[in-house]
Amino acid sequence: MGDAIRLGGFLVNPVEIEAVLKRFDGVADAQVVAVDMGGQTRVVAFLILTNHAQLDEADVIAQMRAQVAPFKVPARIWFVDAYPITLSSNGVKTQRNKLRDLALARLAEPVAAAGA
Rank of each mutant, 00 (worst) to 15 (best):
A69R: 10
M64L: 14
R106M: 13
A62D: 11
R65H: 10
A75Q: 09
A69H: 08
L55N: 09
Y83Q: 05
V60H: 04
F79I: 10
T50W: 00
S88A: 11
A66T: 08
A105P: 01
E57D: 13
R106S: 07
E57I: 10
S89V: 13
N90G: 12
A103E: 00
L87C: 08
I77E: 01
A103I: 02
H52Q: 14
Q54H: 13
L87V: 13
L99V: 03
R76S: 08
R76V: 04
P74L: 06
T50Q: 15
F79M: 10
K72T: 00
T50S: 14
V73Q: 03
N90D: 12
R100L: 01
R96C: 02
K72D: 03
T94Y: 03
T50V: 09
I77S: 01
A58M: 09
T50R: 15
N51W: 04
I85L: 07
R100C: 01
S88Y: 09
R65M: 09
G91Y: 10
A69D: 07
K98R: 10
V73E: 00
A53Q: 08
K93I: 07
Q63H: 08
Q95A: 09
V92A: 11
D59N: 12
A53T: 08
R100T: 04
I61C: 07
A66Q: 14
K72F: 05
V92G: 04
A75L: 08
L87S: 12
D81C: 00
A75W: 04
L55M: 12
Q63S: 11
R76W: 06
P70H: 12
T86W: 00
V60P: 05
D101L: 04
K98W: 00
N51S: 14
W78K: 06
P74N: 08
K72V: 03
A105E: 14
P74Y: 05
R106F: 07
V80N: 02
A105G: 05
T50C: 08
I77H: 03
R106L: 14
V80K: 01
K98S: 02
W78S: 06
N90L: 14
R96K: 12
Q54P: 00
D101G: 01
A62S: 12
K98N: 02
W78D: 05
R76C: 06
R65F: 01
Q54A: 12
L104G: 00
A103S: 03
H52I: 00
F71L: 09
G91Q: 12
S88G: 15
F79C: 08
L99T: 02
